[in-house]
Design a protein around this nucleic acid. Structure first.
Length: 285
DNA sequence: AACCAGGACACAA
DNA sequence: TTGTGTCATGGT
């Protein structure tokens, strides 16, 4: 079962590899991943994305939503501040998008992300899925693939089971979070209806979740447009591009992020993040 | 071979 | 409140 989506100003490769989701693998610009429990293969050709999956009859809404194909990117970019750093980032990251992910997968993945490189996060998440995820249907002859583990399936494993997935000191955090949700202490679906600050306060109750990881989940899963995760890269971007040769504290950077980047600050953050990472990579080669 | 990674946390001052 | 050491693992 396959279809084609017309897209404009969409860079699929940059989007899937920009550190928001960790389960995509590519071979020759063909991307394979699991979305909403479904195996998917994506391939971009100019102004279209070819999508292929195995389950018939369930439509494509789940994928449209995940890829956020209805977002008017021109309107988003137009809301960016017209300063030199932001214009440079927008120019360098044409077509970069924000995905809309499942809250639990996003939360658990980013708990595993703390003080880890993206390649290592990918490895941890993959091990987690192979060990505790349900197998999903794949095309004939293809190697097995697994869904992201459910909250309940993680809540009942042991800490050492999780440490076997190479997540180290993050294991009790993932376990504790799954157990809190499993006990009903906190409902991830309820967060959708809350204002940003309240939703963030709820996420901060989970072990291993601080301001940065909370903002990642708020932006990448719940779609709060002004959530602005400040990691080491974004901090570097803000300091170098907006506060050169000044020692600016994180607290002030948060205030700056809330007042300077407008109604789509979260998108601006992703552009700065990707801009810094790709710029450095180009400079060192 | 040191240094660092899409940080969070306990503890000190 | 703000600053510092620690945590587990592996890439660069």
């Amino acid at each position: 079962m396959q279809t084609t989506f017309a897209v404009k100003n969409y860079d699929l490769a940059a989007t899937l590899a920009s550190g928001q989701a960790f389960r995509w693998r590519s071979i020759d610009d063909v991307w394979e991943g699991i979305v909403a429990g479904r195996w998917v293969r994506l391939h971009q050709q100019h102004d279209s994305i070819l999508a292929e999956t195995v389950l018939a009859g369930s439509g494509w809404q789940w994928l449209l939503h995940y890829l956020q194909l209805d977002v008017d990117l021109a309107a988003v970019l137009d809301a960016f501040p017209k300063d030199a750093p932001m214009m440079a980032a927008a120019e360098a990251c044409r077509g970069l998008r924000l995905l809309r992910q499942d809250p639990w997968e996003c939360l658990a993945s980013f708990i595993c992300s703390s003080n880890k490189q993206i390649v290592q996060i990918q490895q941890i998440v993959e091990l987690l899925c192979q060990r505790f995820g349900e197998p999903v249907e794949v095309p004939p002859g293809r190697e097995l693939a697994f869904a992201f583990p459910t909250i309940a399936s993680i809540a009942e494993v042991s800490e050492s089971d999780l440490r076997a997935c190479k997540m180290g000191f993050r294991a009790p955090y993932v376990l504790g979070t799954a157990q809190m949700i499993g006990r009903g202490e906190l409902d991830l679906e309820k967060l959708r209806d809350l204002p940003l600050a309240q939703a963030r306060a709820e996420l901060l109750k989970f072990p291993g979740v601080g301001r940065k990881i909370a903002d990642c989940v708020l932006l990448f899963a719940y779609g709060f447009p002004t959530a602005f995760p400040v990691d080491v890269w974004v901090m570097k971007a803000l300091r170098e591009l907006y506060f050169p040769r000044r020692r600016v504290k994180l607290k002030r950077l948060h205030h700056f992020s809330e007042t300077h980047f407008g109604p789509h600050a979260g998108y601006a953050q992703q552009y700065l993040f990707h801009y810094m990472r790709t710029r450095k990579r180009a400079a060192t080669k």
